[in-house]
Design a protein around this nucleic acid. Sequence first.
DNA 1: AAAGGGTCATTCAAGTTTCAACTAACTCCG
DNA 2: CGGAGTTAGTTGAAACTTGAATGACCCTTT
Lengths: 166, 166
Amino acid sequence: MTDAEPRWLSDEDQHVWRQIIAVINMLPARLERELQRTHGLSLHDYQILVQISEHPRQEVRLSDLAEATQQSKSRLSHQMTRMENAGLVARRNCPTDRRGAYAVLTEEGWDALRAAAPTHVESVREHLMDVMTPAQKQVVGEAFGAVAAKLRPAARATVCPSTEEC
Amino acid sequence: MTDAEPRWLSDEDQHVWRQIIAVINMLPARLERELQRTHGLSLHDYQILVQISEHPRQEVRLSDLAEATQQSKSRLSHQMTRMENAGLVARRNCPTDRRGAYAVLTEEGWDALRAAAPTHVESVREHLMDVMTPAQKQVVGEAFGAVAAKLRPAARATVCPSTEEC
DNA sequence: AAAGGGTCATTCAAGTTTCAACTAACTCCG
DNA sequence: CGGAGTTAGTTGAAACTTGAATGACCCTTT
């Protein structure tokens, strides 16, 4: 911002902020393009495969999956349908709660994940991890850890500001 | 990742990576919600208003604007139409190149920007800048500066790898 | 001055995401 | 039991994004 509008952040802060925006804008797009090109998967697809694979019995309740991947249930539902059509995942109904469903990986889904993972990791290294020094990574990890913690839903606490009578 | 798939990143790197993803996933969403709630603007709207306001004569060629805001011309074109309908911006045709067009702010656009800026800056402070120590900000700025630089289109250099005869 | 090859911006069609219902099933409590 | 209130997940339409195709124009070359 120049002087055309209210003062903002200090010059230093502003510089930092711009770098962060730039990375936020470009990094996911780049990772997505590479994943798409090499394995025909979107970043969303990939994240879902990873999440399912990481769960104890390789099955996840859809709600949990939605929360873990930070998206609405609706969006996940559409996405699951697409991935189901692509043969990557399947839905299984939950024996203990008949409303519920599990997302599971198909053989093909496992194969896709195993194939894509090394490439994706390579991208992450190339564009991010290998660009930072170990010392920088350490600090970034701490700083972003704090930022992420503050952004998270925050169980209780902030829900009732002190002015409310709850 | 557990042991179910190929080794990844070191534990430390992985931790850092997760924090970064978390921020990338949550921060823009949060800023958007707050901007939307307080001033009815999307983050895209806001970034466009800012970009136009920052240019010398408060008019920007659409191509430049597309590049500056990291989006396709197509997307920008649609977005401009929406913002034009909302009364925030206008298109003016370029006198020297009859293919081209400038994006300019309307009075209403200026008002919206002036009104939204302080709130938005406050959000950025609250969720990001004030959560990091000055030392952390410094390091993050440097590290992300390097990452962003490497992600950028890279004028020339990488276009002709040394093996080519150009 | 006409041809060829570029660029600027919009449009189209296809895909994705959002939003607001909606159904079905579960829980709780009188 | 039985009905109010919740929760899980789906649906369909509208809004948005994307990439390719298009149209209009500019620039160099011959």
